[in-house]
Computed example of a mutant assay.
Amino acid sequence: MKHYIENLCHTLHASFYRAEIEKLSKFLPYFETATMESVCKWTPAEKTGEKQVITPYPTYDKSLLGFIDEIYSSNFMYTDYMSTIQDLDGDLNIAIETADLDLLRAILTYYVRAERFSDGAWAMAVEEKVFLKILRRLKEINKVE
């Protein structure tokens, strides 16, 4: 009986995110061919005054920005993502392969928010196929649930 109730709760929990997973899944073809160079162009440094310089910064393509906007506009972001991922031993990229829904949400949130702290983080995530792996795993989980 306990196992049945746990499965029922897990299925109900996953169903809350089914629509978001389906919306995000439309970006799978994009990430299958995306490369760092195709999604990001770096605006060069610019001297604006005698002692003022604008440092280089990334300019992302519309599809990647659409993906990020889709995540932010959904309720897929995981507010307590840092405490969830700090318990992982090793590479987040490897953890994606066996992650459950909440861990995937935490990892995705980590990578989406990383751009705020490190210019070019989204480009690196694309290059390392992180977003692609997350979307594939979400699709896999969505089929099972």
Rank of each mutant, 00 (worst) to 15 (best):
E127C: 04
S83Y: 03
H10G: 06
A99K: 05
S74G: 11
E46T: 04
K129T: 15
E97P: 00
A99I: 08
E140V: 13
R113A: 07
F76S: 13
D80I: 04
K51A: 05
T109M: 13
D100N: 15
F27H: 11
F67I: 10
W42H: 02
L132H: 07
M36H: 09
E6R: 13
D102G: 09
M77R: 12
Y60K: 11
I5Y: 00
L65D: 08
V53Q: 06
E70N: 12
D102I: 08
Y17I: 10
M77L: 12
F27V: 03
S63G: 01
V130T: 12
T79S: 15
I54K: 15
T84C: 14
L12Q: 01
F67D: 10
L92V: 01
I96N: 02
V144D: 13
R105V: 11
R116I: 06
L88A: 00
F27C: 07
V144I: 10
Q86G: 01
V39W: 09
K62C: 07
R116D: 14
K23I: 13
N93F: 01
G120F: 08
P44Y: 07
R137A: 06
E50Q: 02
A19G: 01
Q52Y: 08
L8M: 10
G120S: 06
R136I: 00
H3V: 12
T48I: 12
C9V: 08
I54G: 07
K23M: 14
L88W: 00
E46H: 04
E20D: 15
W42T: 13
D89Q: 01
M1H: 09
N142K: 15
K2R: 08
Y78R: 14
Y110Q: 00
T109E: 09
S118K: 04
V144G: 03
L104S: 00
K133Y: 02
H3G: 06
A45I: 05
D80H: 09
E22P: 00
Y78I: 07
G90C: 11
D61Y: 03
I71F: 05
P58C: 05
N75V: 05
F67W: 14
L12R: 02
T11S: 14
E22D: 09
M36Y: 11
L138I: 10
C40E: 11
D100A: 10
H13M: 03
K47E: 12
R105H: 05
K143Y: 11
V130Y: 01
E37V: 07
T84S: 14
Y110D: 00
D87I: 06
V53H: 02
A19E: 08
M77F: 06
F27Y: 15
W122Y: 09
A14T: 14
W42K: 05
T84V: 14
I94F: 04
L8G: 02
K41H: 11
T98F: 06
